[in-house]
Design a protein around this nucleic acid. Structure first.
Lengths: 225, 225
DNA sequence: CAAGTTCTTGATTGGTTCTTGATTTGGGGA
DNA sequence: TCCCCAAATCAAGAACCAATCAAGAACTTG
């Protein structure tokens, strides 16, 4: 099932889109501004984002810029203004399509289907995760630190990918063991400590005061995002 | 240089689009109806088709249906009518975008660029793959290294084609086995190692320090791109 | 059908990574 | 501040992985 993230500050429109798209068989998430949208997009990795350009807090443009740094989820822009200028800027920024309000639901779903079909064919879904001066390429299993490719062991890479995939989450050691060994994990939680130690040695400037992988005392570890 | 085919029955519009797009650096061909468009498209294989839906002789819908049987060139639809109906049908038929008349030239070029950019990313059907001083011709199943044609076994060729088709991706051995034997693959992952070894012997200067086919420890192999 | 290729297999080797248990360091509550 | 438990560290053995080779099986081609 495909997931669509709707980002709009007006509750009515969120509600409308949400119910309509749900009926069409999509899983629909909503966010009220760019900030929340970024957060949800990181966690849920939606297949498509429908975005209102005019929003308080973090506006649409800004959201696109930030989000594009991390993923290239297709984006459909909603705009109230009929100005050509906006459309052009939006498309240049990397939006995949746009709709001017008011629009019909039939039209919307047609666009949604078209964009999703395209993005599935193109499958150039490069999974690039970024944080600070770290870049992790999931597809290529490559990690760069300040532009330099660094060499990680399989476990180190998998842990870092998990961390960067949901920055800010505090993982327990069991969570992490789970990631490394599947749910049939067994054995020592201390193993994780050693992997964390080795990872820190490779990516942190000062292992004593880690910038990326923080210790959550009594719980586990968290990636600062 | 990219080629755009403009299909419209009104000479004015053909002229306008043609001169504008030429200025933007595209090679522009024109056709007055669907019949002629099909003919030209077969010959010239344009990178993009801009199509007026309302045309005498063979109409826009019909053209799309016929053309899609042969290729999937991206198509932008022009429509005078503001009816939602048309847009929906057009998109369902496989158009990639549409514009309602009247439209601005800035808007048009933005769309053109956006659509071409998208289709280039997804163009995995490119016949000639290049990397460093390697050239792989999919259609002719030929590989050249520094201008010299080299001889690869079928498996070696298929592997190299897969690698060069998505450089930078880290394939697992199962991925590769899949490519060689279809999804009914069976048997030893070590088989892949041997193919890789033989491939390296043919294309790498120093198999110990491969420039093209890198080992991703604990995972598989990656073509450096 | 026979000769020549290509593919697969299994064993071996050298190297990397992971895990473990003991020990030291450090955080936080009483 | 002291005490307890959690986290960091270390080194060594175990487990794992990639490269390589040679021989036989499977496939192609004439």
């Amino acid at each position: 099932m495909q997931t669509i993230l709707v980002v709009d500050d007006t509750p009515n429109l969120r509600q409308l889109l949400s119910s309509y798209l749900s009926q069409e068989g999509y899983r629909v998430l909503t966010a009220v501004d760019g900030r929340e949208a970024l957060f949800i997009a990181r966690q849920e990795k939606p297949d498509l984002i429908i975005l209102d350009l005019m929003m308080p807090e973090m506006g649409g443009y800004e959201f696109i810029r930030h989000h594009r740094q991390e993923r290239n989820t297709p984006i459909i822009i909603l705009t109230a203004k009929l100005e050509e200028q906006d459309k052009v800027v939006g498309l240049e920024l990397g939006a995949d399509d746009y709709l001017t309000k008011p629009f019909g639901m039939r039209e919307l779903t047609a666009r949604v289907r078209a964009v999703l079909r395209r993005s599935q064919n193109s499958e150039s879904t490069q999974d690039l995760l970024r944080a600070g001066d770290l870049t992790l390429d999931q597809e290529g299993r490559l990690v760069q630190l300040r532009g330099e490719t660094i060499s990680l062991t399989p476990s180190e890479f998998d842990l870092l990918a998990a961390f960067m995939g949901t920055p800010g989450r505090a993982f327990t050691r069991l969570d992490l063991l789970n990631i490394l060994q599947g749910d049939a994990y067994e054995g020592y939680e201390r193993t994780i400590d050693v992997h964390i130690r080795n990872l820190r040695a490779k990516i942190e400037l000062d292992s004593k005061q880690p910038r990326y992988i923080e210790t959550v005392y009594g719980h586990g570890y968290r990636f600062a995002g």
